[in-house]
């Protein structure tokens, strides 16, 4: 897993609530057997018309917006457990997703892949959306070590929560399997007792 520490980037705003994993990556694109290439179909049905032409009004098709931070409305990633959703977002070039609420499984999947989900307050989320509406190039600074998000232009800053263990995984680029494999003996002892 790749390491994450700090990022300053412009953002892609997606001000819609309850974005489910079927929107992030529709089931018909889950047939691949590797982790790569899902970015092409990220938000497929919002990006393309039925005849495969681009929907000009969708933010990912708007050249005014770019960056490695996706900002979305509350309850992001609800629905299916498909990790393909996290892979697709990462494959499309995002390192951070910001929302005021995340669905559990998506959040776990994102963390397991080094994609940082940051939960901010409703008010701060609204402030981010307002800022980017006025200036499409507005940047955010994400500091994982200090657990803060800052709107660069205004200096408005908010702290965010992250599990200490998960934080160290992201900073050091190691994953749960590395961690549990070191406990194999404990697991075998547990099985003996059961």
């Amino acid at each position: 897993m790749r390491k994450f520490e700090k990022l300053t980037s412009a953002i892609v705003p997606l001000n819609i609530e309850n974005i489910d994993t079927d929107q992030i990556i529709p089931a018909r694109f889950l047939k691949a057997t590797t982790r790569e290439g899902f970015g092409e179909n990220l938000f497929r049905d919002w990006r393309y018309n039925g005849d495969q032409t681009l929907k000009a009004d969708f933010v990912l098709n708007n050249p005014d917006y770019s960056g490695r931070i996706l900002v979305a409305g509350k309850n992001f990633g609800c629905g299916s457990s498909r990790e393909h959703a996290a892979w697709a977002i990462q494959d499309a070039g995002f390192d951070v997703v910001i929302s005021s609420f995340f669905a559990d499984i998506f959040k776990g999947n994102a963390l397991n892949n080094g994609l940082l989900p940051i939960q901010v307050t409703d008010a701060f989320l609204a402030e981010i959306f307002n800022t980017v509406e006025k200036d499409h190039n507005a940047e955010l600074e994400v500091d994982l070590e200090n657990q803060t998000v800052t709107i660069v232009a205004t200096g408005a800053k908010e702290g965010f929560e992250i599990n200490a263990y998960k934080k160290s995984c992201l900073i050091n680029g190691y994953d749960d399997i590395d961690f549990i494999l070191n406990q194999k003996q404990l697991i075998e002892e547990f099985e003996q007792k059961k």
Binding site: S81, H84, I105, G108, Y165, I177, I180, Q183, I187
Partner: peptide
């Protein structure tokens, strides 16, 4: 409960999951 593919790999490898 449902899990993502990284966790499927975790259970394959260890029959355990790290869970809050």
């Amino acid at each position: 409960f449902g899990i993502g593919t990284s966790q499927v790999e975790q259970v394959f490898a260890t029959q355990c999951l790290l869970q809050q």
